[in-house]
Nucleic acid binder design. Structure first.
Lengths: 386, 386
DNA sequence: CAAGATTGTTGTGGCGTCCAACATAATGCC
DNA sequence: GGCATTATGTTGGACGCCACAACAATCTTG
C-alpha cells in the first residue's frame, strides 16, 4: 500500500477511505458489512463513511433492514455526483460516455467518422460530447479516461502506436486533459476491458485473472495478478495477440508471423460464414447455427490455436480464471469442450486445479466502464482532494 | 501493504520495520540513507533501527564518514545471528546451506545420493546437515526454505509434481518444519532463482523482471511484476518451459509437444559438442570455442526457439529486463546479437524501449540464496516475533 | 410489550509519527 | 588549532488515527 515509502498515520486514513470507497464502488454495502470485511472498528467505519459523505463521494440510504435481528445498518452507496468521462476512439467513430461510480453508464454518445479520426478530432468530439452529456450541475467530473486500440504508455497516457487509427506517439491523455480541464488517463482498450470484467463482470472477486479480447482488428488482453493489474514496465503488458504459437503462418498487425492474432481472426470466421459484417449477437448466432464443414474446420483450427496461447499463458501466470471477450466469446461458445480439452492437454497436468474459462459478462459498455476506471483509480488512490 | 484489510497504527509500525529491514537486507545503508529512501523522519528511523537492533536483526557500525561534511551516520547492517536453512534436493544430491541476511551463504554441504532421494531421505539429510552447519549458538534459525525442481504450491509448500525426483503431492515444507522445529516454505527452484537474481543478482533494482532458467531437466523461470513476485493462484506461475512455440516437435517433460523446453535443451547442445557431461563453465567454454557447423546450426535453432518464447513473454508482461540463467546464459553468450535481433523482430515494435536481456549474475549459490528468501520474506512480513 | 440481538454514537486512551530545539561530530577556512 | 558550517543523532511535546467500552437506538422474536 505505501509502496517503498515509509508509512505515516495520515496514510492509514487515506488507505482506509480508499478501501471503503472502492468496496462501495464494487457494490453497495451496509456499514456493518464494511466493518466485517475491513476488520476495522464500527466507530472507525462510521467516521470514514461520514467523511466520504461530506466529500460527496457516497450516500447513505436509510433503508436496509432485511429481516435481520438488531438495529438496521444503513446502506452505503456511491454518490451520483462524481462522474468520469470515458472515451473510446475507433476506426469509424468516437464513443463518449459519462460514467458514475459503480460502473453505471449515465449517458453515452457515438460520434460517427468517415475516416479514422485524428487525435484532434477525437479529442474535440469527446469534449463536445462531454458538454452535451453533462449539462451544468449534472455532476462533478472527477477525470477522464481513454480506451485506445493500440499500444499505450500507461504512466502518462501516450499512445505509442495505434496502427488502425494511424496514431503514433500521440499524447492523447494530455490533449484530453487540456480540453476538459480535468486529469485524464489512457490505456490499451483490451487492458481496460480486462479491468472492467474483473471489477464488474465475469472476473468479479477473482484475484488472478487473464482476460483475452478478440476485436475486429486483433487480439489483446489484460492480466490481473494478486488483485493488481499487471501493467509492466511501461504499461503495455497484456498483448496476448502477439504470442507466438507456430512457425510460418500469416502476419499479424505488427508484421509478426504465427501469432495468436494471425491465426485467430474474426474476419476468417466471417468469411466461412459468408457474412460481410455482423454485430456480436448476429455473429454468435450465425456461428452456432452453421454446422457446415468449412465452418466446423475453421472453428476447430482457431480453437486449437487459441488453446495453445491460453495454455502458454496459464503455464506462465497460473491464473484461476480466464475470461474471453469479443468474438473469442462466441468462438469458445462454438466448441467449449474442445477448447477446454485442448488447453488442458498443453497445461501443467494438475487436473484438480483446473482453470475456469468463462465468457465475458459485460456487453457493449465494456470499454467505457474500463476507461472510467482510470480516473476512478486515481480517486481511490487519494479520495480527499477529489 | 495492508491488503484488503483496514490499517491500524501498529501495522504502520510493522510496515516501517519491514521496510528498513528489507532495505538493509538488500545492502547495508546508513541511517541517513534510510531516512532519505523511506521519507520518514530522522527520529523515526532512529527508533526503528533501535528496535531492530534490540531484536538482534541488525547491527550498527560506528564507521561510516566517507569524507562527507557533517556528523557521520552509522552504517546499519544485517545481524549475523538470524540464519535461514536452505535446501535443494536434486537427482543425485541434496544441498543444504545456512544463509544469513543479505544473502550471505555461511556454510554449505552437499549430500550425495545414488538414486533420487525420497522426501524422507531429503528431509533427513537436511536436518542432519543443518545440525552440522550450525553448532549450538552459532545463530538463530528463523526458518527454512526448499527449492524443488518441480511444481510446488507456494501457499503451503506442497510439491504437486516433481517428475525427476519422482515426488507427487509431497508436503515437503511441513515435513521439514517438523524435522527442524521452525517454519519452512517451499517453491519451484527456478522461481526462487528468479527471486535471488532479482534481489542480489542481475535483476537488482528492477521492478519488472522475467528470469528464465535452463536446467539439465528443463526450463523454468520466475516473474517479478511491479516489484512483487508473481505467484499465480496456487503459486506455480513462471513455468516458461511449457510455452508453446511451434506445432509438432518433440515432447517436453510433461508430454507436450513444441514447447520451449522441448526445443531448447542442454542435452542437444552437449550432443553436438560431443560432450557427455560438463559443469557450467566447461559447457560455456566448449560452446564458445566450437565453431563447427553442427554446433552453429544447433545454437541458431535453439536461439530462434528461445527468441519466440521470450518475445511472447515480453508482449505479455512488458518487463524492462530479462535475465537468463543456467545453460541459457551460455546459449545467449554464444549468439547474443542474433538473440536480440530475433526477439526484437517478434516483439512489439517499440525500438526506443528495448528490453534489456542479461545473463544471470549469481553462481552456484543461486538456488540456496533464493530458498533462503522464503523464510526471510516471512521475517519481513512481521519482524517482531522473529 | 418485553427480552434479546445487532448496530450506531460518543468519549477516552494508546500508539506511531512529525516537528522543533538541542546536542554531536565531521569538514573547511583562517 | 579554533571557529563557522553542515549534516546527523537525540529528546520531549503535539497531532492524528484507531481501538475500546459504555451507552443509545432499533430491529426481531415470542
Amino acid at each position: 500500500m505505501f509502496g517503498d515509502q515509509g508509512g505515516r498515520n495520515d496514510l492509514v486514513r487515506r488507505h482506509n477511505l480508499a478501501l471503503v470507497l472502492r468496496r462501495v464502488h464494487l457494490a453497495p454495502a451496509t456499514r456493518s458489512e464494511l466493518t466485517r470485511v475491513s476488520g476495522l472498528n464500527r466507530s472507525t467505519i462510521g467516521a470514514l463513511v461520514a467523511e466520504l459523505v461530506d466529500r460527496g463521494l457516497v450516500v447513505e440510504d436509510e433503508a436496509a433492514g432485511a429481516g435481520q435481528v438488531g438495529r438496521p445498518s444503513p446502506l452505503v452507496r456511491p454518490s451520483d455526483a462524481p462522474v468520469a468521462i470515458a472515451v473510446n476512439p475507433e476506426l469509424d467513430a468516437v464513443t463518449v460516455a459519462a460514467v458514475r461510480l459503480g460502473g453505471r453508464v449515465l449517458a453515452k454518445e457515438r460520434i460517427a467518422f468517415d475516416a479514422p479520426p485524428s487525435p484532434e478530432e477525437a479529442v474535440g468530439a469527446a469534449a463536445e460530447a462531454a458538454r452535451r452529456l453533462l449539462p451544468d450541475g449534472a455532476g462533478r467530473i472527477v477525470g477522464a479516461g481513454v480506451a485506445v486500440p493500440g499500444v499505450v504508455r500507461r504512466t502518462d497516457g501516450l499512445v505509442r502506436l495505434a496502427p488502425h487509427l494511424g496514431w503514433h506517439d500521440v499524447p492523447i491523455a494530455e490533449m484530453l486533459a487540456e480540453a476538459l480541464g480535468v486529469h485524464a488517463g489512457a490505456a490499451n482498450d483490451a487492458s481496460l476491458g480486462a479491468q472492467a470484467e474483473w471489477v464488474f463482470g465475469a472476473g468479479r472477486g477473482v484475484v488472478d485473472l487473464v482476460y483475452v479480447h478478440g476485436g475486429a482488428s486483433g487480439v489483446g488482453g489484460g492480466i490481473i495478478s494478486g488483485g493488481v493489474l499487471v501493467s509492466g514496465a511501461t504499461g503495455h503488458a497484456g498483448e496476448l495477440g502477439h504470442i507466438g504459437i507456430r512457425r510460418g503462418g500469416e502476419s499479424d498487425t505488427i508484421g509478426v508471423r504465427g501469432t495468436l492474432e494471425s491465426e485467430v481472426r474474426r474476419s476468417a470466421l466471417l468469411q466461412v460464414l459468408g457474412l460481410d459484417r455482423a454485430d456480436p449477437d448476429e455473429f454468435e448466432a450465425a456461428l452456432l447455427a452453421d454446422g457446415s464443414r468449412p465452418v466446423r474446420d475453421e472453428v476447430r483450427r482457431q480453437v486449437a490455436a487459441l488453446a495453445v496461447a491460453l495454455a502458454s499463458t496459464i503455464n506462465l501466470l497460473n491464473p484461476s480464471r480466464i475470461v474471453l471477450g469479443g468474438f473469442l466469446s462466441a468462438l469458445a461458445a462454438a466448441a467449449p469442450d474442445r477448447l477446454a480439452e485442448a488447453v488442458a492437454a498443453r497445461a501443467l497436468p494438475l487436473p484438480d486445479e483446473p482453470v475456469d474459462i468463462r465468457r465475458a459478462a459485460l456487453g457493449s459498455d465494456l470499454l467505457l466502464i474500463g476507461a472510467a476506471e482510470l480516473p476512478f483509480a486515481r480517486l481511490f488512490a487519494d479520495p480527499l482532494p477529489g
